[in-house]
């Protein structure tokens, strides 16, 4: 796995360039699935002006890499890439980008979903919303725990 598979980014993610890099990683790629998690302008009905993303350097990359490795064991992937933003993120900007490439779409779709589900529950990142003069830490979501648990069957 090359060092470009997982990256933490302090600046906006160029999703078109990332997608192209994954699509061009091998000549036998027939399907590329991408997921972009976008910063919403509201959280639980309240307007926000920005999100702050904090991470545990080293562990964040390691956790994502181990789940990309696991995805590679489960599905025939030719390439995968995960880029996660940290720092201050404005509404409309990409927080996380996942791309998976395979010969056919089934493996690429499944692997992208698998990687995202585990990233949500096991990669050490934390979100804080900024808006109306207040900063509020986002609570973990039980729905995300269930989404990750279904892959254990």
């Amino acid at each position: 796995m090359n060092s470009e598979t997982v990256r933490i980014s302090h600046s906006p993610i160029d999703t078109a360039a990332e997608t192209r890099a994954v699509a061009e990683a091998a000549s036998n790629i027939g399907a590329v699935v991408t997921f972009s998690g976008i910063c919403r302008a509201d959280e639980k009905g309240a307007q926000i002006s920005a999100l702050h993303l904090e991470h545990y350097p080293g562990m964040a990359e390691q956790e994502i890499e181990s789940h990309v490795e696991e995805a590679r064991k489960r599905w025939p992937l030719f390439a995968a890439r995960v880029v996660h933003r940290v720092g201050r993120i404005m509404p409309g900007e990409t927080i996380v980008f996942v791309a998976t490439a395979s010969a056919h779409r089934e493996a690429a779709f499944a692997a992208a979903e698998f990687i995202m589900d585990y990233l949500k529950t096991s990669a050490p990142f934390w979100k804080k919303t900024e808006g109306g003069g207040k900063e509020i830490w986002v609570d973990a979501n039980e729905k995300d725990e269930r989404a990750a648990a279904r892959w254990q069957k």
């Binding site: 545990y56 996660h84 927080i95 990669a123 050490p124 934390w126 986002v138």
Partner: peptide
């Protein structure tokens, strides 16, 4: 909690640890 950047439970032994981390449930992605 994490020991040496690996998730652990409360009953995990800390022998051999060089770095212990404490944090809330994760909310990335």
């Amino acid at each position: 909690a994490a020991i040496n950047k690996t998730h652990v439970r409360a009953e995990a032994k800390i022998a051999g640890a060089s770095e212990i981390a404490f944090f809330p449930p994760m909310t990335g992605g």
